[in-house]
């Protein structure tokens, strides 16, 4: 059978192939998105800002927005640095580097709630860490790592857990990016007498920028939406926006305020994505060297 004749024109084919994905996006993404937006703005008397006002007046709102931002701001840069170091290490292609890549990617396969619970088992009052510290005689009685009186420490446990769990996705993106950089550039830099850090700063990082951009966008959005790890470790101590949205929907059964939280979260995510696209823009002439 002649495909081109069958489809009429060969320019139609790509669109036909895209159709299933588009249908999927429409049903599972765009429709719920539209619903959430309309739920957040429509009340019994039509258009209203009442649900957003309700959200702003929520006792948890201030804390949730503060925690969400601080968590994203502490987790993402830390992950980027760790992942960059690990990616460069793996990219030296030492013996067994593949094995390490898989090892580092392992936490990706674990659900976020399960990861939160694993770390809870470590940090809880009678958890692994306290047991080890006490067995070594370093402390006399357990340290309250998770405590409403020490929000900072609880916050740190969440950062650690999330760092362990989700750094691998950045690593995978950066390794792929590094492998696309042609050795020619590095060799040229060496011939011109570039030192190690100069190669990193003037050759690798600029060429890695598109990968960094994707990694940053993905990770920042996921960090803003982070929920299960914060709930498992922080409970009511460290409320986050996604969690409040969930509780307004499931526990307090107010889909309007739940949607207001979700729409706010979406606006923040869009804003952050715009910032990355704007400030990490790669000029075509740089990449097409």
């Amino acid at each position: 059978m002649n495909w081109r004749r069958f489809l009429g024109t060969d320019t139609l084919l790509p669109y036909l192939l895209l159709l299933p994905t588009l249908a999927y996006l429409l049903v599972f993404f765009l429709v719920p998105l539209g619903n959430a937006i309309s739920l957040s703005f429509w009340g019994e008397e039509g258009f209203t800002a009442q649900h957003f006002l309700g959200m702003f007046q929520d006792v948890k709102f201030g804390e949730a927005i503060k925690n969400t931002f601080f968590l994203a701001l502490s987790i993402v840069p830390l992950q980027l640095i760790t992942a960059l170091l690990l990616a460069m290490l793996v990219n030296t292609r030492f013996r067994g580097s593949k094995f390490f890549l898989y090892l580092y990617a392992l936490p990706l396969g674990i659900s976020d709630l399960a990861a939160g619970l694993v770390w809870l088992a470590i940090f809880t009052q009678h958890g692994y860490l306290n047991s080890i510290l006490m067995a070594l005689g370093l402390i006399e009685r357990p340290i309250y790592f998770i405590s409403y009186q020490n929000v900072g420490l609880t916050f740190l446990t969440i950062v650690l857990a999330e760092h362990w769990r989700a750094t691998a996705i950045v690593l995978v993106i950066l390794v792929a990016g590094l492998q696309m950089i042609s050795r020619d550039y590095l060799e040229a830099a060496e011939v011109l007498g570039a030192k190690r850090w100069q190669k990193l700063w003037y050759v690798i990082l600029p060429l890695l920028k598109p990968s960094l951009q994707s990694a940053l966008i993905i990770r920042t959005i996921f960090a803003l939406q982070m929920f299960a790890v914060a709930i498992a470790l922080g409970g009511e101590i460290v409320p986050v926006l996604a969690g409040e949205s969930y509780y307004w929907y499931s526990s307090y059964r107010n889909p309007h305020i739940a949607s207001a939280y979700a729409v706010l979260l979406m606006a923040i995510s869009l804003g952050m994505t715009w910032v990355y696209l704007r400030f990490l823009r790669t000029r075509p002439e740089v990449t097409r060297l």
């Binding site: 809870l120 809880t124 009052q125 309250y144 998770i146 405590s147 409403y148 009186q149 020490n150 470790l233 922080g234 409970g235 009511e236 101590i237």
Partner: peptide, 8 residues
């Protein structure tokens, strides 16, 4: 009250 109570 135990300090971890808000997580239980």
């Amino acid at each position: 009250v135990n300090e971890a109570a808000p997580t239980w």
